[in-house]
Design a protein around this nucleic acid. Structure first.
Length: 556
RNA sequence: UGGGGCAUGGUGCAACGGCAGCACACCGGACUUUGAAUCCGUGGAUCUAGGUUCGAAUCCUGGUGCCCCAGCCA
């Protein structure tokens, strides 16, 4: 069994010792279908499914769909895809809070009959005013002492659609002076003449989350109900409902939700980004949604390793996005075949190489692995492309790439020495003339002379064109939700978070498709865009760059 | 000035009365046909003040700081 532990595991171990749930562990993942899942949900879901797996238990998928005006089937399907992508499965246990609407209604009736719930005619504003404040007790609604018969009648008529939205609610009769605001006669049902994504127009009253969640867990026989810290204050209410109703008590356990630097992580804010068109949609590869990460090329196992490293606790914290990136690189490094691709092409002409000649180099998919058997042929000829940053007219100290009079190795090919540059009318370098050493075929010279720099290249005659999208953090601010007064995260979206370039790829990449990641050597990991890339019109997303200690040196 | 929670290197998480450890980041070095990866190495933390104890990150008390709660959202 895993030796890595956390406070949730300790609690469950204790339950198992005491026999509280008879050794049973049954969890649930309860998303609301009102948006796409993000990496924060991945943490929750990994805990829900991971804990059950650890104890040989089960996990239900249950949509908390108690608010028809916000929810949609589009999200239901997207959520399932994301969970499966991460490698979890709920079997046939796909449930909806809306499956329980009839039972919840019966429970409400029971509470009314027990004198513990009442129909309130107060408006939303009045309810707020009556609720009191954090430091002052609230006061009872004038409708609080209605007879059971009247409450039964009114609640039935609420269901029957006799009253307009907002005109009445059903409230629990608890304690308007409770220090826990959630216990001040919370609303159980509201009138909402809205179509529900599953129940259609069958209902015009809908239970509040607080009246649905605990009982849904109970009905499903959930033993351990994990959720985020903000629900800690609600636990006494769930327990109250369960007690009054005489139902089975799951144990709710609260943990700190995941926060990541350089991004925002609430569905509300992510939706704003989408609506304001600051990103192309929920799956824009800069988004922290799982769908976006998948599109960008993050391997699911990287996300799982990341979450395992982050751990689980009750401490509110911010995880550096660099930790996530570390696990993405780690996973990709192991699985991505190496290819040469030039993102910012600069033409190189080998003046002493025969015109019209093409030769091929056999190159391993994983050159660092001598065991690697898979290879491909890479064409080479007189005109090539190299990266603009791999040539410097006036090289700075410690620069050991190409410069006039300098010899470097073209990876897997030949040593070349730059002799002169051609410039266009604007003074921009248009091409670099070089000579190559025919004796260095394969990138090695018999005389054993050392060449400091090795750069990648693509044959100009054989290159395949592709659009390559480079991504930076969506926000340069480390904490984009924590801004000075009057500024909004929307104004802080990083203008350089997307750079598009026209790249030259080695021809082997011509039929790359989403599903396989590639390392473009000395550059990063790239993944064909699942929405826009087609044969003949390739589009690659840069999943993540390689660690670039040269750039780091330059910056410091 | 109500209630609920949380404080351990830069970040995240461990240590459950007995030598404060792990990962990432940072900084050195080795290696290198990827300035990547890999390998080796250095430094750096228990919010605070008391108390209990042979011994406290851990238990007790008082401070301090941060988070959550006043939706007919979840």
């Amino acid at each position: 069994m895993d030796e890595k532990t956390n406070f949730i595991i300790e609690i469950i171990d204790e339950h198992n010792r005491s026999g509280r749930f008879g050794g049973r562990v049954h969890t649930r993942f309860p998303p609301e279908p009102n948006g796409y899942l993000h990496i924060g949900h991945a943490k929750a879901l990994t805990i829900d499914f991971g804990i059950a797996e650890r104890y040989g238990g089960l996990t239900n998928l249950r949509y908390d769909d108690t608010n028809p005006v916000k929810e949609d089937t589009e999200y239901v399907d997207a959520i399932k895809e994301d969970i499966h992508w991460l490698g979890f499965d709920w079997g046939d246990r796909e449930f909806y809070a809306s499956d329980y609407f009839e039972q919840l209604y019966e429970m409400a009736l029971q509470l009314i009959r027990q004198g513990q719930a009442y129909v309130d005619d107060l408006s939303a504003d009045e309810i707020r005013a009556y609720r009191g404040t954090l430091t002052e007790a609230g006061k009872n609604s004038p409708w609080r002492e209605r007879s059971i018969e009247e409450n039964l009648d009114l609640f039935a008529r609420m269901r029957a659609g006799e009253f307009p939205d907002g005109s009445r609610t059903l409230r629990a009769k608890i304690d308007m002076s409770a220090p826990n605001m959630n216990m001040r006669d919370p609303v159980m049902y509201r009138i909402l003449h809205a179509s529900h994504h599953r129940t259609g127009d069958a209902w015009c009253i809908y239970p509040m989350y607080d009246f649905a969640h605990g009982q849904s867990d109970s009905l499903e026989g959930i033993t351990h109900s994990m959720c985020s810290l903000e629900y800690e204050n609600h636990r006494p209410l769930y327990d109250w409902f369960l007690d009054q109703l005489g139902l089975f008590h799951p144990q709710q356990i609260e943990f700190a939700r995941l926060n990541l630097t350089h991004t925002v992580m609430s569905k509300r804010k992510l939706r704003r980004l989408v609506e304001e068109k600051l990103v192309s949609g929920w799956t824009d590869p800069r988004m922290p949604t799982l769908a976006a990460m998948r599109r960008r090329g993050y391997p699911p196992e990287a996300i799982r390793s990341f979450l395992e490293a982050v751990g689980v606790a009750k401490n509110d914290s911010f995880v550096d996005v660099e930790l996530l990136e570390h696990f993405v690189r780690d996973a990709l490094n192991a699985q991505s075949k190496r290819r040469m691709a030039v993102l910012q092409p600069l033409k190189v002409i080998l003046d002493n190489y025969p015109e019209g000649k093409t030769e091929f180099f056999t190159v391993s998919d994983f050159p660092q692995d001598p065991e690697c058997k898979t290879k491909r042929q890479v064409p080479f000829c007189r005109e090539l492309y190299i990266e603009r940053v791999d040539f410097m007219e006036n090289p700075v100290p410690k620069y050991f790439r190409l410069a006039i009079g300098r010899e470097v190795r073209l990876m897997n090919a030949y040593y070349i020495t730059a002799t002169s540059v051609e410039k266009d009318e604007l003074g921009k370098i248009a091409a670099v003339h070089c000579t190559y050493d025919p004796e260095s075929r394969g990138g090695m010279s018999a005389d054993g002379r050392k060449v400091k720099g090795t750069i990648h290249w693509v044959s100009a005659a054989h290159a395949v064109d592709a659009e390559v999208r480079l991504y930076e953090q969506l926000f340069e601010d480390k904490f984009p939700e924590d801004l000075p007064e009057g500024e909004t995260f929307l104004d802080h979206v990083n203008k350089n978070s997307l750079t598009v370039c026209q790249a030259k790829l080695e021809p082997d990449l011509a039929d790359a498709q989403a599903g396989e990641s590639w390392q473009f050597v000395r550059s990063g990991y790239f993944y064909p865009d699942s929405e826009d890339s087609k044969p003949g019109k390739l589009v690659f997303n840069r999943t993540i760059s390689l660690v670039d200690s040269w750039a780091k040196m330059q910056a410091s």
